[in-house]
Nucleic acid binder design. Structure first.
Lengths: 341, 341
DNA sequence: GTGAAAGCGCTAACAA
DNA sequence: TTGTTAGCGCTTTCAC
């Protein structure tokens, strides 16, 4: 609790009997510095515990060695994992990570990005909360701030992006259900302002259409990506007279909620209801039977996003690159043949 | 991709035909500013998209409006939850949150804290990776940086802390097993350099001693807090000739691992093995039977830590406050009476 | 090889 | 009420 003022270059220079310029040169190892002088400076710095002031450096150089990450919700295991990967990759290149979760709120996302911009961070990785109203992002990109979109791609945003094949993955999931004889296939999806949700919905519809099955709005429930909301949505769907025989959930938290809800309703998976979820998760192998899922290569997203961002930070200036990883169906035991079709 | 230079006060001042000082006054709303001038400034600022430069402000004022958080591992659901809570609380008081996970590595923790210090953040919330070698933390505290320890308290560190009653919780868990007739009670615990692990180990030992049960080192396995490590540890413990009849795991990732391992070994919970874990988690209610746990008030930790930190940031200068929340036993179905004692 | 000095963008003490 | 000016700590020309 002794607010001692930290040592500055000035202090070091004085202690080493050189000018601030020489001290800076020695400290940062550039330009011409006499060996003797350099040694004295380094010694003095070590003795005084010189640390350098990143803020001053940043003001001088225009940028803080920080990368911003704006996930939809840090508590979602998907984003937690990605955040962890970004953290590691960023640290590997001398950057700190500033995480600010938008909580899927567009207003908050805007405020957070404003904030990051004001901090002069070197670049940002964003999972945009909404497909619409992206003027703030466009603006950021336009100003020259390196931006990489993850998980959620905005079609005409001129910046790099990393995502997975949501439409294809969803289609594969629903097709699996169809080939198992299901016709009343329910969907629990996310707020349609989230691109990912739209894409997965498209996959669901495309699969149905490809098999000449009607699209029934009463089989589609919209939920937030939380366990509780998904429970409510599931109960709504399965309380209807002509109950669905299968369910596709678009993210792991929802799959979790669906599982809990079905159990509380006394519906057995897969005997009464076949279930398949988007995004693999620990729990999926805990249940009996284990849950069939569409897995995404979660571990690849963060590192690639960071690499792309660093490229931009280091001046790479070609056309935006868009990477979309394929998904992978993991067959476990939660989908069964529909008998009474 | 047009690296336009951002608008500065200077630009705004020029556009509004006033001096930089007046512009600053109008922008920040302090001192005397004529209504007309103020209006012109605000208008110009809006028109030019003035945002202010936090870095310059920070250099001037000595501090960045950032709070640092150094969790043991952001991927651990416990820390993810706490991070989320801290994020929300910090934002509520105009601070950004910089998360830098130490990954339980002391060297990394030191580097991260150095980094945060160089950034002149307003304060840090830390879950120290080790009980020993805390000179760097002591130094930070000594220099006057507000520091709040969470989850892991270091006995003689002169700073605030928020934790739970690890010893008491662990003791209650083990006593539950004892009163159910178990005598060979295994423990999977974390690296003993983590304070929390020590405390929980103490609780385990105290419970055994209070009931005159011997402490058998072969029943104690050390693991990292990952599912995979816990699986290995469990297999080791339960491959011994005189198999334990009960198991206490000190964190949720370990409980998860234990569950998977026991299942792979064909051991039924609770018929063959009674299980109780420290820290409640989603999965606990997914299994059949559900898992009995010692729950911690996770949601209270982050907000309180932030409040304490803000107090310090705002000059509160009394003796360090140490809060320890009680834990709560949640009885579910994973503990049964031991028959063959 | 080294130093003097300017300036990054901002705020605030002081002067007018 | 407004403007002038200094200076936060740092880096980097430019001159010596």
């Amino acid at each position: 609790m002794t607010p001692r003022k930290p040592t500055t270059v000035k202090d070091v220079a004085a202690a080493a009997n050189v000018s601030r310029a020489t001290a800076a040169r020695a400290l940062n190892g550039y330009g011409y510095v006499g060996d003797a002088a350099a040694e004295r400076v380094l010694e003095a710095a070590a003795r005084l515990g010189y640390r350098g002031n990143r803020v001053a450096q940043a003001l001088r150089q225009g940028q803080l060695p920080i990368i911003g990450f704006v996930p939809g919700d840090i508590q979602n295991p998907f984003f937690a994992r990605v955040a962890h990967d970004i953290d590691v990759a960023a640290r590997g290149s001398q950057h700190s990570l500033l995480i600010a979760s938008s909580e899927e709120d567009l207003t908050q996302e805007r405020a957070l990005l404003d904030n990051l911009r004001a901090l002069n961070v070197r670049g940002v990785i964003v999972a945009p909360a909404s497909v619409d109203d992206n003027a703030h992002l466009a603006q950021l990109v336009h100003e020259g701030t390196p931006v990489v979109l993850i998980d959620r791609v905005l079609a005409d945003m001129p910046c790099d992006s990393v995502a997975v094949d949501n439409e294809g993955g969803a289609r594969e999931a629903v097709e699996l259900l169809i080939t198992h004889g299901h016709r009343r296939i329910a969907l629990i999806q996310d707020d349609s302002r989230i691109v990912t949700a739209r894409d997965r919905l498209a996959g669901y519809m495309n699969a149905l259409q490809a098999h000449d099955l009607p699209i029934n709005q009463r089989l589609i429930a919209v939920s937030n990506s939380t366990v509780q909301h998904a429970i409510d949505a599931t109960i709504r769907l399965f309380s209807q007279p002509d109950r669905p025989t299968a369910l596709f959930t678009v993210d792991s938290l929802m799959t979790t909620g669906a599982l809990l809800a079905l159990r509380s309703m006394g519906l057995n998976v897969p005997r009464d209801v076949s279930l398949i979820g988007f995004d693999d998760f620990d729990l999926a192998t805990f249940t009996d039977p284990q849950i069939t899922v569409i897995a995404q290569p979660v571990g690849k997203i963060g590192p690639l996003a960071v690499r792309m961002l660093l490229d931009r930070i280091h001046g790479f200036d070609e056309a935006p690159r868009h990477v979309r990883f394929p998904t992978r169906l993991i067959l476990r035991g939660s989908v069964s043949q529909n008998i009474a079709r």
